[in-house]
């Protein structure tokens, strides 16, 4: 068994396997060409800890939850209409991957990583320069990163619409049970977790008590909050 294969197994395996932090780094680095990485299956819950359904999420509102790491914040948006399906996207090296579309009966629910793939501007507890713009707002219908005025289309897997980003935001792959329970199961596309954990040590210390804590995997459930509840300030330029 090659070392890389072994690491992949460790990465995908049960959480009871104790791995060294350096090995976690290796799985973050790993490039197996699939552009998809399964993380632990995590139930999305409301602030009371109860399951939540798509119908609980207001249309066009910016929601967030932390996944797959304690310190990595993701966007959750119930879009006003059905998204595109089976969209082929490319990472910055031209590697293609397939975004399957929104989930739910009406295929309106989407989730993306909150780390901008351009220069790592990200949603955090202090401020967010990233948000979905609803009807009536400037750049409506797009996810905008105001770090460098980059627009992404949430209806098409966060394809770059305007700006200098070389690739889309990574998608959070979700599942919906028959009873409406929502789960986050993995990350598709150009995740930037390695660069993210390398660059923001001081922020992790301030907001999570250190990088090690920020880098812990989220297990079993993740709380969905309005972005305005999670972050002190949403900044839109």
């Amino acid at each position: 068994m090659e070392r890389r294969d072994f690491l992949k197994v460790v990465g995908a395996g049960a959480a009871v396997v104790i791995v060294k932090p350096s090995m976690i780094d290796q799985t973050l680095y790993a490039d197996d060409g699939s552009m998809y990485k399964a993380y632990g299956k995590v139930k999305l819950v409301n602030s009371d800890g109860n399951m939540m359904k798509i119908s609980d999420l207001k249309k066009e509102e910016n929601y967030v939850f932390n996944y797959p790491f304690v310190g990595s914040t993701c966007m959750l948006i119930n879009l006003p209409k059905k998204t595109a399906k089976e969209v082929t996207l490319k990472n910055e090296f031209g590697v293609e991957y397939l975004w399957k579309g929104g989930i739910g009966e009406n295929q309106t629910l989407v989730s993306y990583s909150g780390i901008c793939p351009h220069q790592l501007t990200h949603i955090n507890k202090q401020e967010s320069f990233i948000s979905y713009r609803k009807k009536g707002e400037k750049f409506s219908g797009n996810i905008v990163c105001d770090g460098h005025t980059t627009l992404y289309d949430p209806n098409r897997g966060c394809k770059v619409v305007q700006g200098k980003a070389q690739q889309p935001f990574a998608s959070i792959v979700m599942e919906e049970d028959a009873d409406g329970t929502l789960w986050a199961v993995g990350v598709l596309g150009p995740e930037k977790f390695h660069d993210f954990f390398k660059n923001f040590r001081r922020e992790f210390k301030h907001q999570f008590g250190g990088k090690r804590r920020a880098k812990k995997k989220v297990t079993s459930k993740a709380t969905v909050l309005l972005m305005s509840e999670y972050t002190e300030e949403i900044i839109q330029l």
């Binding site: 901008c116 220069q119 790592l120 501007t121 320069f129 770090g147 460098h148 900044i235 839109q236 330029l237």
Partner: peptide, 14 residues
Amino acid sequence: INNGKGMHEWAKGM
């Protein structure tokens, strides 16, 4: 004020 904050975030990203 937001542009002032944006200016800092722009530079940090660069």
